[in-house]
């Protein structure tokens, strides 16, 4: 039973951020990542934080889910901060603990860099939380579309992504099935030395690959039978739509940029 399987971190909540065109979300994040590096005053950082936190609230997703998504990077953020405290030796000493001196600049740099880091991760995770993988795929195909003239395989890339998304649950079910079959033949996946466990993976991986190749072959044949001949001359059912909500968001973002440049030192 894999009914709980979730790909990516998408959490449906129906907020207006969920309903934005995925291209808008990707574009905004792209520019946000750029302007984060222009912030250099308390006020400018304040503005960016306000934007990120505001967006997070606007998704209507519970804070605990958002923080859960950031779990793997807390350590990195903390590490960056501590590293700065120990390595940076500029400005005046503001405290001395057991002979170790804390510099003013160390504190400032440590905080700003971890804050930047936090903002970047948070905003990008908002994308995956509010956008289904297939929407992201569509957006990527569209955004990379112009590069087709340089022979960039935008359509193929998107198709590959969407087929992978389609088959992840199937292959997970298959993995479960094969591992049960091999466990019944006496394979122990859970205990034993490292070497034993590596060995135990082979009876799982070989059948998985064999089956994946067979699936790929059959799928290719089925796609061909249904008239697939590449992206040329193909129409699309899925359409992306830039609406008034997107314009509002672009407007807000321009205001943010203006605010940022006004509050810089």
């Amino acid at each position: 039973m894999s009914s709980s399987m979730m790909i990516g971190q998408y959490i449906p909540a129906g907020s207006f951020i969920h309903k934005l065109d995925p291209r808008t979300k990707i574009a905004i994040i792209f520019f946000f990542v750029v302007i984060v590096f222009f912030a250099n005053s308390v006020m400018s950082y304040g503005l960016l934080t306000l934007f990120a936190v505001g967006s997070a609230f606007a998704t209507k997703i519970r804070v605990r889910y958002i923080l859960k998504g950031l779990k793997p990077v807390w350590f990195l953020i903390a590490f960056t901060f501590l590293l700065h405290l120990f390595v940076t030796r500029e400005g005046e000493v503001i405290a001395t603990v057991f002979g170790w001196e804390l510099y003013r600049e160390a504190l400032i740099q440590g905080s700003t860099i971890s804050l930047r880091f936090f903002l970047l991760i948070m905003v990008t995770s908002l994308l995956t939380l509010t956008t289904t993988p297939i929407e992201i795929t569509d957006a990527i195909e569209q955004l990379l579309g112009p590069f087709k003239r340089f022979r960039f395989p935008a359509h193929e890339l998107a198709l590959m992504m969407s087929i992978s998304l389609r088959f992840i649950p199937t292959l997970m079910q298959e993995t479960e099935k094969i591992s049960k079959a091999q466990a019944s033949r006496g394979v122990d996946f859970r205990t034993g030395s490292f070497k034993d466990r590596i060995k135990a993976v082979i009876p799982l991986l070989v059948p998985l690959f064999v089956s994946a190749f067979k699936r790929a072959e059959e799928l290719a044949m089925a796609m061909e039978a249904r008239g697939y001949k590449g992206g040329e001359g193909r129409t699309k059912l899925r359409e992306l739509h830039i609406g008034w909500k997107d314009y509002v968001v672009y407007g807000l973002f321009i205001l943010l940029m203006a605010g940022l440049f006004l509050t810089r030192n």
């Binding site: 298959e174 099935k177 094969i178 049960k180 079959a181 091999q182 466990a183 019944s184 033949r185 006496g186 122990d188 082979i202 009876p203 070989v206 059948p207 064999v210 089956s211």
Partner: peptide, 19 residues
């Protein structure tokens, strides 16, 4: 382990377990 040795299971499409 002993139990699994005593009880043989032929799963659906068992040929998928060959490796």
């Amino acid at each position: 382990r002993e139990l699994r040795e005593k009880v043989g299971v032929v799963f659906q499409y068992p040929e998928h377990q060959l490796f």
